[in-house]
Amino acid sequence: MLHIVNKSPLTNGAFDSCLRVATGGDILLIEDAVYAATSGSAMEDKMREAMKRFTVHVLQPDLEARGMADRLLDGVSSVDYGGFVELVAQSKNCQSWL
């Protein structure tokens, strides 16, 4: 399953809930959730743990818009909107953790 998260993990529990409940698969970070994929934040250790269970992707245009493209964590794949479409298409199902 593809899990789509759009909230900053530093101010909202959606990403934590996703990590707590989801069994594995892919996570795509869009909108304010892209901060979860950056280095140096209080989330970094948790993110590295999560990357052992999930394949993590980030929406590059959202990362760039927020000036964080130079802080992308190693091991997180970046996709454009076309890549977002392909991730949804390749996954059996998807859910947005709103």
């Binding site: 909108e31 245009p61 076309g82 977002f84």
Partner: peptide, 19 residues
């Protein structure tokens, strides 16, 4: 909210890919 923008850009990309 960015939701409508994200959805629009998703749709545009999907259509460009022939979906």
């Amino acid at each position: 909210h960015q939701a409508s923008d994200s959805a629009y850009l998703f749709c545009k990309a999907a259509l460009e890919k022939g979906h």
